[in-house]
Each structure stands twice: as C-alpha cells, then as structure tokens.
Write a protein that binds this DNA or RNA. Structure first.
Length: 593
RNA sequence: GCUGAUGUAGCUCAGUCGGUUAGAGCACGAAACUCAUAAUUUCGGGGUCGGUGGUUCAAGUCCACCCAUCAGCACCA
C-alpha cells in the first residue's frame, strides 16, 4: 500500500550558516527518513525553507547596515548549496518572504479571527520618538532594578540573570541612539490558546504512543499547566502585514507565521509542479502521516501552538468539503542537542563547525554516517573529531567499505569483470542463509527507519555488513579458486548479491556512495532523484528554491535480483581512511577561530 | 525557583510485565587468515547500572529524596 508521508523540517533562521548541530538534529534525520520512504515507493513530500523574518535577522541587518532582505537572501543561497552538497533532498526548500507564504499566513490569521480565536488587547510599550517606532525589548537598555547593573536588556539582565519587563528598567534608553523611549499605548492581537486548551489536551492524549517520551511528556505538561493567550502581532516593519485595514504598521509575529510555512510550502510545491490541489493529498487525507523534525527548543511550537493554530482555522482552509479536516502532526521526533568536543555549540563564540566549511574538506557520506551515528535522539551527544575519524576508519571503511572493495575487486580481477555464474551444484546452506539474513534487513532496517529510530537502523545495516564479512571468510573464495574456480565463483556471486542488497539498505544513510556502488555493480540509472535550484517568479517577487525530481529514480526497497554474467565496472574504494592527526589539526583550526 | 527529559563498560547505545553470573558495536589484548584501504574473522579482559534510603523472596527495572546535564517557563523561535 502506498503511504502519503509529509516530512517537515525546522525552518532555519537565515542569519548565519548551518552548523553540524543543525544537520544532526534537524536536517539529516528527515532526509534519511524521506529517502527510505521514497525507496519504498511511498508518496513523499519534504518541505521547509529559510525563515526570513524575526529579530535575529533585523539585528544582524542593523549591525551590518544593510537591509534584512540582503541578509536573509545571502544565507538562503548558502543553505541551498549546503543541502545540495550533503544531499538533503527537499521537494521544496523555499523561504517565508514569498507572496504565497504571506497570503497563506494572512488567510490563516483571517480564519482564526473569523472563528473567534483571536482577540485584541491594548498595552503600554516603549516607543522611540527619535526613530518613530516601537522598540523591541532587546533594543532597550537600562539599569537593572534588582542588582543595579547598568547594561541590563529589556528582557533580561545579563549581570544577575533576572528576567525583566522593560518597564522595570531604571533610566531606560534606546540601544540604537541612546534616546529615552516613552511609553505609548498600542493594540495587539492575541491567539486565544486558552480557548483551545481542551482540544489541544485531547489531541495530545490520544494515539501518541509512538512519540518520543520527552516530546509527549513535555507537551502534555505544557498543555496541562494551562495555556495563555499569546500576542501574534508586533509593531515592526520587517514581516508580514495584517490583512486588516487600520493596522498598516503591524506585522504578524514570526512565531505565529513561521510554522505556517509547512502549509504554505506544500501549497507552493503543488503550484510549482502544475497541480495546484496536490498538497491536499498530505493535508486532508486522514491516512497521510505528517512528521516534524525539529530541535528540542522548538517542541511546544510544534506540539501545542501549531496544532492550536490549525484548530483555530476550524481545521479547514481552501477546502469547501465540510467532512475534511486538516491533519495535525502525526509525529514530532524532536532531537536533543549536539555538543562539540565536550562543550555546547556557541555561534557567538564561534564554537561550531560550519557545514560549508566541513563539506569543503570531507565527503558528504562519512559526515552523514557519523552525524547519524551520534544523533541526539534521546539525549545530548558530543561531536569529536577523534570520534569522527575513528568511526570513519574503524566502522565505515573497515566493515562496509572494505567488504565492498574486497568483493568487487576480486570479482572484477578474477572473473573477467563480470558477475560470476552459479555453479551446477547450486547454492548451499551457507549461501542461502546469508542471502536470507541480509534480505531480512528490508524488514528489520525498514521497521526501524519507519519508527524514526535512525541510529538503530544504521547499526542494523552495519550488523548485516559484518555478517557478510563472516560469510566471506568462511567461504574464502581466494583459496577455493585455486582448485575449484566454479565453486568459488558461486560464493563470489552470493557475496555480490548480498552487497547489492546492502546497497539499498545503506542508501538512505549513504546515498552518494551507494550510487557509486550501484554503478560498479554494472547497473545504470540513479537510485534517487535529482536536486536542482529553480527560480520562481510570482507577481512581483522572485525567489530561488531547492527542488527534487524523483521521476527517474530507480532505487527500490526490494531484494536484489542480481543476474550472473552482468558486466561490472572497474571498482574504486567508496571511502577514504582519515589520518588520526587530522583531529588535532581540526581542533587547532577551531581554537584559532 | 517551577515543569519535563536524560544519567548503564573509554565512546555510542540495548535492557520488554521487576526474576538465573547486566548485553551489543567500536576502542583495548591475544590468536587465525592474507582477496581487501594493516582492512577481515575468532576468542578474551573491561561496568558496585549518577548518589542515598525504601518497597519486595527478588530492583538497572517500582517509590522518595538528592546530585549532574539539557530544555521550557523570556518580545528567541
């Protein structure tokens, strides 16, 4: 049965490059998952995009003296490159500064408003008369009322760590020009989460057995504590305007609007492929499964607030059939955090390994292999270069790469570059056993992948590679060939067929090298589809997005039917060993900044 | 501070409804082998299961408290 799988990933803030923590936590896992489902022949839609709005981007733009557009477009293009280099295969990776996203976000706002889940509230906020605008908390400085520290921010004192309200500050002043802000009344819109509290609790209380413990427990507790209304508008310029006259200076606040990207990107994808209704396959079919891959800091936004937003629309948008309901998240496999060399990643201290930098010096598959091996599925984990090199050399190269190399090399040299024939004696017990064991991997590895246990799935594939090594040592065709080349040929055939199976089992994790192996085995075609960047033109705006075309992909999650006599291509090692000295060099690079 | 998650061999992790001497992979030691990127295979050493109490015939597994790490409670999403 063909399943419909929607794979959503966190929207990276376009104010800096991606680092290994982003990759391991939010981008590689969904790619592995999506590739598996594509091999299964399932109907996969994987979407995300750059988050173009939000304070960090305007802060960076202000600091550089450029426009927010310039900042987010720069990093957006770099994201597109990184995802192509490491092979994160989005069907659509767009951004939130498109006409489509603005329209969808406004329509959702309007629907929530119409359904009575948005209310107004007037409050006092600091306003800069010199700049003619309201100031976000972070733009205000003053003296901390608790410790007397003079550089306290509007939201928090960096000296005594107290959480502050900006009106608490003594002698408040603007961070921009030092002028004294004045309190002024402003009206804001709030999402009425209180009204949705029961519905959210119901949603979280049923059919969540497959959720990771920390995700479901945390979310339930969050909802049980009682939800409060949250402001969803801001007095800023950079963002999506409200679809209401009389509020021209207000923008949708980014937390409300960014999660809508999952929906708007699906809509955009459908339009891009010329089937404007196609997105409904994933959003309105109750059998479709929707997955959200994010970091742990984002859990409540995806398990509570996004479902609440969907509920507030009445779970229906762009659809007239009253029997249809928008799908709420099926699973939110949030990851914990990745540390590095024992310390938390810190972008401000530059304690991070940036993806573009790493991909300049290392191949994508070893990076994928290591980052998946240490993925923070249930707790924080630690990236070390020593670990990277060791796992590359002692596991990836030694067990899997070497198996491929020894079998392909032997077959190519000793059997005239062809897959050897099965001898007249046929397959013996050992032959049948290893084939059956590895073919069982389609079930065991597949079950683990479907359950989003991606580390365990990779380990299971490695276990089967090891079993193949044991088989080979038992048969020792390099010895047997001396007095019975036909029998030895049978073993080589079996080994090649086993590798052909492992090629598919490893493909979600190691797509680039499995493609090479596919070719060495004499096959044509691409296991997966093609990634490309396309420029899309709307009425007034133009944006670049990353796309995926899987129509020509030949990879199938099925047992090998390798034919004797098939011509092999001249093999070469799939992976490189790394010098242990590299670890010290890499750490030296880091500490140099 | 409040809420939640996590804490099992050097590293990454399994440990189902509590039940025989706590498991796996890698690292480490020894042996075999040589087709292969000194890769492979076999065998072995290695843990008072964060701590302290408690329940029980029996606790890594249940309960209480404590400690450590992380996250949320912030106009950061």
């Amino acid at each position: 049965m063909t399943e419909k799988i929607l794979v959503c990933t966190a929207w990276p803030y376009a104010n800096g490059d991606l680092h290994i923590g982003h990759l391991a936590g939010a981008y590689l896992p969904p790619d592995i998952f999506a590739r598996y489902h594509r091999l299964r022949g399932n109907n996969v839609l994987m979407v995300s995009g750059s988050d173009s709005h939000g304070t960090p981007i305007t802060l960076k733009a202000d600091a550089e003296g450029v426009s927010p557009v310039e900042v987010f477009e720069r990093y957006h293009l770099r994201f597109l490159q990184t995802f192509q280099d490491i092979g994160v295969t989005y069907n659509l990776f767009t951004h939130t500064d498109t006409e489509n996203h603005a329209k969808v976000a406004q329509d959702i706002f309007a629907a929530c408003l119409e359904n009575g889940f948005i209310y107004n509230h007037t409050e006092q906020q600091f306003y800069s008369e010199t700049e003619g605008r309201f100031l976000p908390d972070r733009y205000i400085e003053g003296t901390c009322p608790k410790c007397g520290f003079d550089g306290a921010r509007g939201d928090q004192c960096d000296n005594c760590k107290s959480l502050l309200d900006p009106t608490d500050l003594i002698n408040p002043r603007s961070k921009n020009d030092g002028s004294t802000p004045v309190l002024r009344e402003t009206e804001h819109f709030y999402l009425d989460l209180q009204k949705l509290n029961e519905d959210v609790l119901d949603y979280l209380s049923t059919g969540k057995e497959h959720w990771r413990p920390n995700v479901i427990n945390f979310s339930l507790q969050y909802a049980k504590d009682g939800l409060k209304g949250r402001a969803i508008t801001r007095d800023i310029e950079w963002g999506i305007p409200l679809p209401l006259s009389g509020y021209e200076d207000k923008r949708l606040y980014v937390w409300f609007e960014a999660v809508i990207g999952y929906f708007s990107a699906s809509v955009e994808y459908a339009a891009n492929v010329g089937q404007p209704e196609l997105w409904k396959e994933w959003w309105y079919d109750p059998a479709a499964k929707t997955y959200y891959f994010i970091g742990k800091d984002n859990i409540p936004f995806h398990t509570v607030i996004w479902p609440a937003e969907l509920m507030a629309t009445g779970r229906r948008l762009y659809e007239t059939d009253p029997n249809k309901q928008l799908n709420l998240p099926y699973d939110v496999p949030a990851n914990e955090y990745l540390n590095m060399e024992g310390e938390k990643l810190s972008t401000s201290r530059n304690w991070a390994i940036w993806a573009p930098d790493l991909l300049e010096r290392y191949d994508p598959d070893p990076i994928r292999f290591y980052l998946n091996a240490i993925a923070p599925e249930s707790r924080d984990t630690d990236f070390t270069f020593e670990g990277f090199i060791r796992r590359n050399n002692d596991e990836l190269v030694a067990t899997w790469g070497n198996l491929v190399n020894r079998v392909l090399g032997f077959a190519y040299k000793r059997y005239n570059g062809k897959v050897p024939e099965i001898g007249p004696a046929g397959l013996d017990d050992a032959d049948r056993q290893i084939i059956a064991e590895v073919e069982a991997g389609f079930q065991s590895v597949g079950d683990l992948l479907a359950a989003v246990k991606l580390k365990a799935a990779q380990e299971e594939a490695m276990r089967l590679a090891k079993a193949a090594n044991v088989y080979l040592d038992g048969k020792a065709p390099w010895k047997a060939i001396k007095d019975d080349p036909v029998a030895a040929g049978t073993s080589v055939y079996v080994a090649l067929r086993v590798i052909d199976n492992l090629k598919i089992l490893f493909a979600p994790f190691l797509p680039h090298t499995c493609q090479k192996l596919h070719e060495y085995l004499g096959y044509d075609g691409q296991l997966f589809g093609r990634q490309y960047v396309e420029e899309f033109t709307e009425t007034e705006r133009v944006h670049k997005a990353l796309c995926y075309d899987g129509s020509l992909a030949v990879g199938r999650w099925e047992a090998s039917q390798l034919q004797p006599g098939q011509s092999l291509r001249k093999p070469a090692p799939l992976f490189k060993k790394l010098e242990p000295e590299l670890a010290a060099q890499e750490i030296a690079r880091l500490t140099q900044g």
